[in-house]
């Protein structure tokens, strides 16, 4: 049975960011953006999360710890690439210890770093256009007939 998405609990992993994306994520939790009023929050454990936000171009040293966090998140779950580096369009893609961004991301939030307003808008839009299924998130736009 599909349910509308009213909340998104996010676990953050830094995989080689310059700390700009972290600062903007922190800004999202402040009173000026206050993501909690949109049902979104950054949580302390992947067990509490239903999504993973990754910043940075995915350094080789963080590649395995990152996937381990992903494996710990209960389904349905969603992978979010936050910022150009994680999307794969940043300036450090060609660096030798960079894996060139987050593979298989479901949501991309562009910017260097993304503006908190952009991030909030894209996350809210994604939540209103998707539904929660037992195993996965499905797009309301393309899969409405199956529900």
């Amino acid at each position: 049975m599909a349910k509308a998405i009213r909340s998104l609990q996010i676990r953050h992993v830094d995989a080689g960011s310059c700390n700009g994306c972290e600062q903007e994520l922190t800004a999202l939790t402040g009173r000026d953006y206050d993501i909690q009023r949109h049902g979104i929050d950054i949580v302390a454990s992947p067990r509490h999360a239903d999504s993973l936000i990754v910043t940075g171009p995915v350094t080789d040293t963080m590649a395995l710890p990152l996937e381990r966090v992903w494996e710990t998140i209960p389904r349905p779950r969603v992978r979010i690439a936050f910022g150009n580096c994680a999307i794969g369009t940043g300036v450090f893609q060609r660096a030798y210890a960079s894996h060139g961004g987050l593979a298989d991301s479901d949501i991309e939030i562009p910017g260097c770093p993304p503006h908190p307003e952009t991030a909030l808008r894209l996350l809210s839009e994604w939540m209103t256009s998707h539904q929660r299924n037992r195993q996965t998130y499905v797009s309301k736009v393309t899969n409405l007939g199956n529900c």
Partner: peptide, 10 residues
């Protein structure tokens, strides 16, 4: 150095 990207080499 978990975040080592290889900036100097780049």
């Amino acid at each position: 150095f978990q975040n080592h990207r290889g900036v100097e080499a780049l």
